[in-house]
Design a protein around this nucleic acid. Structure first.
Length: 925
RNA sequence: GGGCGAUUGGCUCAGUGGUUAGAGCACGCGGUUCACAUCCGCGGGGUCACUGGUUCGAAUCCAGUAUCGCCCACCA
């Protein structure tokens, strides 16, 4: 579907001729070449050749949350980019040295999960390839995805400084990881110990607490009889037993005790005796521990210290043995029973059957419980005893908490501070070891004597730190770091830390961390903890958290549900500008938003509206002004109320946008611009100006002033909108006259000052607009032909006379009132039969519209309909008047409310009373 | 079990104490005015979830209730 009449080569689109824009707004053509122009002008970097930060400008830094290198971008990424780019472009235009630093995350476990799926299609697996070939395969994979991601971000218009592109697996990050870990180790904030970790049998690695998803499920609670053994003979006593309750019978094989509550009279005599664990022929003690809830199950608990968190703690308190019974794949092993080699759930079934056969399975009932599942693979997490590296979080969390409590770091919206507080105050040590291949290898070396050497050197230590054994005899830890460990260093590793680089000195601490609230713990908290500890300062002064993008039904977008939206497809259809606007417009910070075609359509229509408004302004240039005329400020004396109003409203929009930007209320930014540009500038500013521009009787200088006023306002709106819709604003801006000190590109032009606000002219024009709307309303209600020019009489207060004189042609045109006859007093208005009566609350204007010739069938009944309208208006006005008077009659109100409010209420009541009186009079009451 | 958020017109959402609660979409009526039908004009439509409280005044603040959503949580 191509329209050959309006299509022009794209190279011309990028730089349209002065005074003209292509007729049709085609986003993909407009956007096509502009990014290249920006790149060529070198304006993305704060120190780029085309950048123009103020000489003494403070830096403004946003480090991009690095997308996972596992695939293409989704709408969430587009939202990240839109919001961050909005802030960056705004900062750049306000003269700051703005750095928006791009990056990619190697996404260790997520990437392996994806790659495992890909190679599985070729019948391969991690094990079949081996570590080296697997990592080569990974390199191929990420090389492809990297290009896809970068090109998508460019398509979105993100003004990222590509020269500073970083990657969590590059050399600088690798060094930062080593140095960070060594530093933590030296400060005793990283330690290695055997502990119960969350093991995912599917991923074959441990995962952090955050990666375990609590899932409510209905399981079974089995009651199992353990037989006592005779203290003297060591033989089981067939008639004496203790019944325990468990949801995981297979862990019987790892039991090393049975626990009861110390105060439980039922079992008091048994404490200290022993029972025999079935199948493994192990006799274990009955111990007393307050952790046991006597009311749950049988009041006796089997203790499996190597496979359960509670039991592990109990085991430590009582010095119990901790036999491991499951291997990496969650297969029973090393128990010396027939169950060795069986999967945990197969073993469970077999054990239950065998217990039943022995008569020791004494009960089972359904049980509501919470299972931990792997965030990545959804496998049931198995607690296992492993020797791993941990980061001591308590001292780090204390500093992070202090930063937000003191206000040095602010969270927007602030209610997330409660979540932040809760998590950081109950945090447990962070297991950073992963038994994966794709990631940063832990820089710890072990010598045969068991010494540990942590080294920050690329080639590792030259010898064991403790005993001096040479490097050749040392063995490096095979594990890698949790992917979030390198992400946690991101705000400073990207700037060159641990080296004192120029960038680090200049841009750290960064300004704003913008990301989705779903990774506040995974990422934001860890950046804060590690950043403060390692660099001595908070990594950013503000954290802004966005909500999630959902589908039109409020469902989370996911590949399995099939409701994901491809940003590229959206941009192809509606443009990057529209996508950005829609994502920002629909959002309140921290709140999820639904995304659907309507929001996109709204945004695309808005871009189209702006495009056409610009086309009008450019085409409306008075012939007296040369096409390439330099931008001149119109003389004050040549400005009428219309021009002053246009200027004032642009200033009001600027102030509103400034306010919203300062509060990180980006949805409010787009709202102010949508209303300002569409409802004010287009609907009224341009429509009112049209009349002046087309009026040959208006002096040339004044017509020129009108046009320059439109250009000024358009210029202001383009600047204000640029951070949200960079492409279309840049394209239009290229076509309008510039000021002498303007750069070639809007992107590096200066942010407008909110100057020219005039509240008196706002009020005066407000009344004129109200009058025009009222006349239109009356005509529409009376079913008069919309296009008919009707004789209209207007009465006005004396002080409105000057405004009227200046605006009569505009009022006439917009209200289709011709001739338009002024009167001093309402009483002078002619009121023939069938005249439409216009009564306004403000009282500045009052009007009658004379009907067309009575013989016209089309207006038959118009008078009656007009009367009905007035009746309704009267009813409403009376209702308001009663309320207003009641309010004023209340002395509590007049005594306590602020004087301005009381005064406003009085004015309101007076106006209402006058309106009611006039309406009554018109209705003949 | 603890915490957080939401509840405003048919739909999606703004609006954190002050006149008459707004927008877009949808809906109804009317429009070929030379920027735009991706448009223009006019209109209908809401006791702001509920109960109580604070206040001269509450969609807005407080307490409670209900419903929905999310986060956190090692009772077998």
């Amino acid at each position: 579907m191509t329209d050959t009449t309006t299509t022009e080569p794209t190279d011309k689109m990028a730089s349209p001729p002065p005074g003209g824009l292509p007729k049709a707004y085609r986003p993909s053509e407009v956007e096509g070449a502009i990014y290249e122009r920006w790149l060529a002008a070198d304006v993305f970097a704060p120190d780029g050749a085309g950048s123009r930060p103020d000489p003494d400008a403070e830096p403004f830094t946003i480090i991009q949350p690095p997308p996972n290198i596992t695939g293409s971008l989704h709408l969430g990424h587009a939202q990240r980019a839109a919001v961050e780019d909005l802030m960056t472009r705004h900062a750049r235009m306000t003269g700051k040295a703005a750095l928006f630093l791009p990056g990619l995350d190697h996404a260790s476990i997520a990437a392996q999960f994806v790659l495992d799926g890909i190679i599985a299609r070729d019948g391969e697996s991690r094990q079949s390839l081996g570590r080296e070939r697997y990592l080569e395969r990974m390199q191929d994979f990420v090389t492809t995805t990297r290009e896809v991601i970068v090109s998508q971000e460019r398509r979105l218009g993100a003004s990222l400084d590509w020269n500073r592109l970083r990657y969590t697996m590059d050399d600088v990050s690798a060094k930062a990881v080593r140095v960070a870990f060594k530093t933590l180790h030296e400060r005793d904030l990283a330690y290695r110990t055997e502990a119960l970790v969350n093991w995912c049998p599917g991923c074959r690695t441990s995962v952090s607490d955050l990666e375990v998803v609590s899932t409510p499920e209905t399981g079974t609670l089995w009651s199992i009889r353990y037989h006592r053994v005779d203290d003297a003979t060591g033989e089981p006593l067939p008639d004496e037993s203790v019944t325990v309750a468990t949801t995981r019978p297979e862990t019987i094989l790892g039991d090393t005790a049975v626990a009861v509550h110390p105060d439980d009279a039922r079992y008091r005599a048994l404490v200290g005796r022993r029972v025999r664990i079935p199948f493994v022929a192990r006799d274990v003690p009955i111990i007393a521990d307050a952790v046991v809830d006597p009311a749950f199950g049988t009041g006796a608990v089997k203790i499996t210290p190597a496979h359960d968190h509670d039991d592990h703690e109990t085991g430590k308190r009582h010095g119990l043995a901790m036999p491991t019974i499951l291997d990496d794949a969650a297969v029973v092993s090393g128990t010396g029973t027939a169950y060795d080699g069986l999967d945990r759930y197969v073993a469970r079934t077999a054990i239950l059957a065998d217990l039943d056969a022995r008569g020791d399975l004494v009960g089972e009932k359904p049980h509501e419980m919470v299972l931990g599942r792997c965030q990545r693979s959804n496998d049931v997490i198995e607690p296992r005893l492993k020797t791993q590296w941990f980061v001591r979080t308590e001292p780090l969390a204390a500093k992070a908490l202090e930063a937000t409590r003191s206000g040095r770091t602010r969270i927007v919206p602030d209610h997330f501070e409660k979540t932040w507080e809760h998590w950081l105050t109950t945090i447990r040590d962070w297991n950073v070891s992963r038994q994966l291949w794709w990631g940063h290898r832990i820089p710890a070396w072990y010598c045969p004597d068991g010494h540990v050497t942590v080294s920050a050197e690329l080639e590792g230590p030259s010898a064991c730190e403790d005993c001096g054994r040479p490097a050749a005899e040392l063995r490096q830890d095979p594990d890698i770091f949790d992917t979030w460990f390198s992400s946690g260093l991101w705000p400073f590793s990207t700037l060159g830390w641990p080296d004192e680089t120029d960038d680090f000195r200049r841009f750290y601490p960064t300004s704003v961390m913008e990301t989705g609230y779903d990774i506040i713990f995974f990422w934001v908290a860890r950046m804060m903890m590690l950043g403060i500890e390692l660099t001595g300062s908070e990594p950013f002064h503000t954290i802004t958290l966005s909500g999630l993008i959902r589908d039109p039904f409020g469902k989370k977008m996911s590949k399995t549900t099939g409701n994901v939206v491809d940003p590229l497809a959206v941009m192809e259809e509606a443009g990057a500008d529209a996508l950005r606007f829609a994502l920002i417009h629909g959002a309140t910070s921290g709140q999820d938003q639904r995304f659907g075609p309507q929001k996109l359509e709204l945004a695309r229509n808005f871009a189209n509206k702006l495009w056409n408004a610009a086309r009008f302004v450019l085409g409306a240039r008075p012939t007296e002004i040369a096409v390439d005329a330099a931008r001149t400020a119109p003389a004050e004396a040549d400005l009428g109320p219309i021009e002053r109003w246009i200027r004032s409203r642009a200033a009001a929009a600027t102030a509103a946008v400034d306010r919203a930007m300062a509060d990180y209320q980006f949805g409010e930014v787009t709202r102010a611009l949508y209303d300002g540009i569409w409802s004010e500038f287009c609907d009224w500013g341009i429509e009112l100006a049209k009349v002046r521009l087309a009026d040959e009787s208006v002096p040339v200088d004044q017509r020129a002033a009108t046009w320059w006023t439109l250009v000024d306002a358009l210029d202001t709106y383009l600047r204000l909108l640029h951070p949200v819709m960079p492409f279309v604003t840049e394209a239009i801006w290229a076509a309008i006259p510039h000021r002498a000190d303007d750069p070639d590109l809007l992107m590096v032009a200066r942010w407008p000052a909110a100057a020219g606000r005039d509240e008196r002219v706002d009020a005066a024009l407000g009344e004129v607009i109200e009058t025009i709307v009222a006349i239109r309303n009356a005509r529409a209600h009376a079913d008069l032909p919309a296009g008919a020019w009707l004789e209209t009489h207007l009465a006005m207060a004396t002080d409105s006379r000057a405004t009227f004189e200046a605006m009569a042609p505009a009022i006439g045109r917009l209200a289709r009132a011709r001739p338009l006859v002024p009167h001093d007093r309402s009483a002078d208005l002619p009121r023939p039969d069938g005249a439409l009566e216009i009564v306004l609350p403000s009282g500045s204007f009052e009007a009658t519209v004379l009907p067309p010739a009575a013989s016209d069938d089309a207006v038959d009944g118009a008078a009656g309909r007009d009367r009905a309208r007035l009746e309704k208006e009267l009813e409403e006005a009376e209702g308001h008047l009663v309320a207003a008077r009641a309010r004023l009659a209340n002395t509590a109100f007049t005594d306590k409310a602020p004087p301005a409010v009381v005064e406003g209420a009085r004015t309101r009541a007076t106006e209402l009373a006058e309106q009611v009186a006039r309406l009554r009079e018109r209705l003949g009451r």
